[in-house]
Design a protein around this nucleic acid. Structure first.
Lengths: 210, 210, 210, 210
DNA sequence: AATGAATGAGCTTTCATTCAT
DNA sequence: GATGAATGAAAGCTCATTCAT
């Protein structure tokens, strides 16, 4: 009777997800040290002891949160699913798309947990090797494809992708930090996306627009 | 004889600085909650109780750390002391200058404490009002001066400055996160600065270079 | 099967009582500030942390001690369950009864905690409104019933009841303070009760006895 | 030159008194354990360290407070300076006099420190031997003088004096505990004194008044 | 598997006491 | 003598973790 087994596994998986979801919420709002197991348990609707059936320790739970939620494939692919057709046109759309996507809860959580990630050697390595470096190399390969080799004078790809990715990250962080007082809130999102795309392609000087 | 008074004041100031310095060290390496007063005291070379003579609570000590170390004038002015002469030339130099300056310990500390700042309402407001917003408005005024009004099609200043500042911030964060494995480490710093400056001015397409 | 629930509740109640009992002991012997949670825990046979499952703070534990032990209904009714038949005869018995009852551990604890009660505004109000004032008004109503209105010249009831209650309280306090050296210890208790009852009714002069 | 010596001694004595006065204030308002040396020092207008020049420890300071302030001769003699002429008249006057005197700050402080006195073996003994017992024996001797031996049926002196002293103590304590809500506040003080004196002499029944 | 009462290590904070000035 | 900064022991309290039910 594999049914029972299956159901059991399903229930287990559901519980685990339930706890993980609550843990993301609490950890991002309070940080690792200030978050408490009873609080996570309460939000997950289980007893504190139950959490220890699914995760051996608070730290392991936190690692799972980072692995499953912060470092997740969808986010990884966010910036890189671009195969350049008409760079100019597409890029604007891509930017808007990215801004919309990045503007989600997960992205907003990263700054909150940045400190914990950077401080923990294991997490730092994990984050770098499973998230940052893959993203960068994916972007580099896209960049190489869309920037034909004949353009000999173009930027060093390593710098270019970090400048672009950095700009998007930094731009979002500034928006988060400014909060409601940001003047960006008065501008329509598609205008912002268009200007940023244009900035990436043509820079400040923007001579070609004339 | 004001000597004694003066000396006393000096000793007191030195102690305070001593504690503050140790606190910066511990707080940035462990975060607020995981840092302990005994540990800070040990590093400062004083007894735990002594800290409470100079700071009324752990939280106030932390606030002092943020106010005195993270939100400091030198950092604030870092990106904005630019009065555009020949934008093209100057900007490259400025960029290098900035990258050198930003590459200091203080800058490296920000990501570590970002979470604590964003989570604490008082700190968040402080950070925004005393650091982010002033920096942005300073940059905007610089931008307006260096971008003559005849260039009607130029970017919205609010977006432009956030794109530039964000790029620098994000670029540095990526470098911190990549650590020693970053390919950027193989490139000379002045080349990086030049490319970034060029990117900001001309963008990826870089047509004018031809 | 409500058994398990019931048993759990019983165990919980027992623990609470256990802690409360130990707390009474320590608080009365040391006072609020000098009493320590570890000490109470030790006497109760539990870990210090356990106390905080049942009482949110040391202060709340102390309030519970006062409410449950000092200001308890049995003590409140102690002085007032007298419905005067033959005042003269009954009163003597009543007095003895009262002296016996008041001579219990609870009564002996009051002086020890008097200071804490008087200093704490919440406790002072509680004590006054739940203990002193009800006792006084009960006594007054008894007094009015037993002192027929035709005796126009009798004492003001408010003064009379406070004089009587005060005398009993003060008498007991003196005895506690004198301890074993008190000459009262050589006199039989029923003689003391009789003399006190007589004193209350006829005063020092005692002319009517002749 | 004994002048300097004398002045020194005087200054010392003044300082000591200054500290003692502040200590009485703080100890009575907070109790022994909750009172702090810095607080007493602040009120006394000296540095915390200075207190240790005059008193070897907090405990010794407290003992001095009790010895010098609570157990003082004036209070001791309060109830006992009566040499019975016309008992009826004098006693009433004496009572009124006493009630006024007892209503002073010192008397009000006793309940606040009762707990500390009762808990400390040394203080308890001191209090009993230097205050309670002398007062009782003084009262007994007065009582014997004013109650001629021919009155064979009079009360046992030991009981009588404790009943009277207790009544006064208990009456005052009740008034303190009732505070502003006490109905006694509506009655003129001389009426209260008169009724209490009358109660002591004639009791509740008060037959002789007719 | 799920519970949550119990534990106790470890934290922040206070304050009596000391001592260099 | 007077000061008050410095000390460090000890308190209240929290919470990760365990385990009997």
């Amino acid at each position: 009777m594999p049914d029972r087994e299956t159901r059991k596994t399903q229930i287990t998986a559901k519980r685990q997800e339930q706890i993980l979801k609550a843990a993301v919420e609490i950890f991002t709002h309070k940080g690792f040290a200030a978050a408490t197991i009873p609080e996570i348990a309460r939000l997950a609707g289980v007893a504190a002891g139950t959490i220890y059936i699914y995760f051996p320790s608070k730290r392991e739970l936190f690692l799972s949160v980072i692995k499953n939620t912060i470092i997740n494939p969808s986010l990884l692919n966010l910036l890189t699913n671009m195969n350049g057709a008409d760079v100019n046109i597409t890029f604007r759309q891509v930017m808007q798309n990215r801004l919309d996507l990045l503007d989600n809860e997960t992205m907003l959580r990263i700054p909150s947990l940045m400190g914990e990630i950077m401080r923990d050697p294991e997490l730092k390595t994990l984050w770098r090797d499973k998230f940052i470096l893959p993203m960068m190399s994916q972007m580099e390969s896209v960049y190489r494809k869309t920037n034909a080799p004949e353009k000999a004078e173009s930027m060093e790809p390593a710098i270019a992708v970090r400048a672009i990715a950095g700009m998007i990250i930094g731009f979002l962080m500034l928006r988060i930090m400014e909060g409601e007082t940001s003047p960006l809130n008065k501008l329509p999102r598609n205008r912002i996306a268009a200007e940023l795309a244009n900035f990436i392609i043509h820079g400040l000087a923007n001579e070609n627009k004339k």
